[in-house]
């Protein structure tokens, strides 16, 4: 049985979306919203003769991180690559709206209470973005989610947790970029255009998608951490991710705002500086960037365990 305690030491990478959702919040605190028993399935897939799932590949629910209500969205990569369709998208949107309404209702009470019980949103990404079978609805959901992230900004922290096999690509890559804090493991990946698509469009010489070492050192957690695209690199257990989420829940909103990689003049300027730096360097490989940032032996960083890596890695702008 998947008890909360056995889940904690489980590999995040190996876990299902539901196990992640349950394990990311405090023991026994998770309640699923629009769960599989509701049978809210995609109306589009049956027409196409494609298999359906009772939760449409997305687990949503509410739990607690200490005193903080945690709204959890967890994508399931094994169901059609974690793609976001009409139902799954609506579930994401609904969960984010719920976070906002909890925040607003807390504002009715004392300021101290509202601060102490400020909600937090945790999104575990495992997706390539829009589900092509129902692309219009999927795209619309992306837009709505993006809107809601703006509504939640400076009110409710939104944390992206990326530790899954598929990682986070496509339209959801943009969504992840627009969250307040990004937490990754070295086994996961974050990007916009997926490796296979880059290879298809630009040719194998530009990017060999079958070279997984290359894929990981370009889109993987370690690279994203060095480049500042992700804020925290953690180990691969559910407990590792939960502890990091707990830590963010306790941070002040000003600190959290400071974690953002985009969305302010300062952030844009920092990004432009990085772009200029890269353009001057003309790197052939991400390891060239690492070296230029002061990492003398890039290969050592690839081999290093997560703990060693944290000790030795030199980050952009860190």
């Amino acid at each position: 049985m998947s008890t909360w305690h056995t889940l904690q030491e489980r590999s995040f990478l190996e876990s299902s979306a539901r196990q992640r959702a349950i394990g990311l919040v405090d023991a026994g605190s998770f309640s699923e919203l629009v769960g599989p028993l509701e049978r809210f399935v995609s109306p589009h897939l049956p027409i196409l003769g494609e298999a359906i799932e009772f939760d449409d590949g997305i687990v949503t629910g509410v739990g607690l991180l200490g005193k903080h209500p945690a709204i959890v969205i967890s994508q399931e990569g094994r169901f059609i690559g974690g793609s976001v369709g009409e139902v799954g998208g609506a579930k994401m949107v609904g969960a984010l709206k719920l976070a906002l309404s909890i925040f607003e209702s807390l504002q009715q009470g004392s300021a101290a209470e509202a601060e102490a019980r400020r909600p937090i949103v945790l999104i575990s990404f495992e997706t390539g973005g829009v589900r092509l079978h129902e692309a219009n609805a999927g795209l619309l959901a992306h837009a709505e989610v993006m809107d809601l992230l703006q509504d939640l900004r400076r009110k409710v922290p939104v944390v992206a947790l990326i530790g899954s096999k598929i990682g986070c690509f496509g339209g959801m890559g943009f969504i992840a970029a627009a969250t307040d804090v990004i937490v990754m493991s070295e086994f996961s990946r974050l990007g916009l255009t997926g490796p296979e698509v880059i290879e298809q469009e630009m040719g194998r010489n530009e990017f060999d998608a079958s070279d997984r070492a290359l894929v990981f050192r370009t889109t993987g957690g370690k690279h994203k951490f060095i480049m500042g695209d992700c804020n925290f690199l953690v180990g691969d257990t559910l407990a590792d991710f939960r502890r990091q989420a707990q830590h963010v829940a306790q941070m002040s909103m000003i600190e959290i705002e400071g974690m953002r990689r985009i969305g302010s003049r300062g952030a844009v300027e920092r990004q432009m500086k990085l772009v200029a730096f890269a353009a001057d360097l003309r790197p052939r490989d991400s390891t060239d960037m690492w070296k230029a940032l002061g990492n003398k032996e890039p290969q050592q960083l690839i081999a290093a365990s997560e703990e060693e890596f944290q000790k030795i890695a030199v980050r952009w702008n860190a």
């Binding site: 086994f187 070279d211 997984r212 070492a213 993987g220 690839i302 081999a303």
Partner: peptide, 18 residues
């Protein structure tokens, strides 16, 4: 597997997951 080998196993690029 690499961890078990104490870093001695050097898997081909296509098998890497980190």
């Amino acid at each position: 597997l690499v961890d078990w080998s104490g870093g001695l196993y050097d898997p081909p690029a296509r098998f890497r997951n980190w």
